[in-house]
Design a protein around this nucleic acid. Sequence first.
DNA 1: GACCGAATACTCCATTTCGAGTAATCGAGT
DNA 2: ACTCGATTACTCGAAATGGAGTATTCGGTC
Lengths: 229, 229
Amino acid sequence: MSRRRVSNPLALAVLSCLNERPMHPYEINTTLRRRGKEQSIKLNYGSLYSVVESLQKHGLITTRETSREGRRPERTIYAITPEGVEEFEDWLGELLSTPVREFTSLEAGLSLMAGLPPDEVARLLDQRSDKLRIEIRALEAAGDVAAEFDLPEIFSVEAHYRHAMLTAELAFVQQLAERIRTAELGGTKLWRRMHELFAEGTSFEQIAADPVAYLGEEARILQNEQPSP
Amino acid sequence: MSRRRVSNPLALAVLSCLNERPMHPYEINTTLRRRGKEQSIKLNYGSLYSVVESLQKHGLITTRETSREGRRPERTIYAITPEGVEEFEDWLGELLSTPVREFTSLEAGLSLMAGLPPDEVARLLDQRSDKLRIEIRALEAAGDVAAEFDLPEIFSVEAHYRHAMLTAELAFVQQLAERIRTAELGGTKLWRRMHELFAEGTSFEQIAADPVAYLGEEARILQNEQPSP
DNA sequence: GACCGAATACTCCATTTCGAGTAATCGAGT
DNA sequence: ACTCGATTACTCGAAATGGAGTATTCGGTC
């Protein structure tokens, strides 16, 4: 069980809205989208309604009134409770103050990249760099538009953060591709030789049985598997 | 429906192992852990077994043999199929070449940070900086150990990537805290005044009804809600 | 040789998540 | 007056996730 009674970040966004004033779930949805928060917090209907229900079950919000207009579906308006306010402040404080291990897709890819030959990885990383540059430019353009509307920076810190992260990723990816191509990255020769052997039809198991014979002195470390770093 | 028949990154890790040689699920588990991949790819039993089953159902792996030793649970050994190899290469290529929107907890926190008063946010960000520095040092220490064992860099690129990202995050967070304190961050005065009013008991709804009266000229933008940036 | 903790190898199932589907209403044009 | 796409407001169930629980065996030690 997670530390929070409701652990989906969307629940925090819900509390944040209800901290302003009572709303019904669909209004929370439109409010968050209007403010562009769905870029930073995963928001889909299924989760929204189940998260609201769960918040209510745990006493962090209460139903204020239910109304219906014509034959449209019933609308239930929710309000935040004092416990909800406390949870909101505590949770938001935790998000800001405490880094958590996140599993990103690039990290997964990098951790398995030895499964593809070095030249191909370098080429793929170049492609990524191109796409990253496009994304970065798009973010900058959006920032310029916001500035023109005199929208204070505080309403888009998330975007600035994303910009910083994308820029750092681009720098890393570019440098990595370069270091693979120049074999400056430790182990690249081993890696290249390995895929040359695969291309010739040698199996992984054959190589693993006697790495030094196939790959040279550098492969001594593979003898009894890498220790966990 | 997602583009991949099996979309959990753990499935890619499973394919990566079986690409070396046939294994049973628990052996995949220990192999990945021994190599420290569980730091980069979420790995728990429930997911492992259901992912393996799903991969088999889709023809990406096949059962090679089932054996049992004594009265221990049965072990089913799986092998990768040609379609599995293709999926592995294609998927890994996509992970490396194509950035995807990720929802990080800091980004969620930043997007809602206006819900806490500026001084507190600055303090929380300082706390985060301290913890980030500790994590960064731990990563560097692990890297030194790996270097001492002559473990080539290629086996821990993920860690280098994480290091780069943490460093960038630290720089951003430090700078943001500073810019909040100096009110250099656009909108900080508005934000501060807002929480002063809350502390005095003014409600959000009162302020929202006539922001300029409460917050001054700078609040004109709030009149009919921010456009999505 | 009996005992204990660690490792082996899963199983099970309560939650959670996701997004397609539904159904009514509004508003802008023809 | 009508039609057609957008918006409003949610429902539903299949699939994924997470992690506690189970049952056996091994390796050391008192």
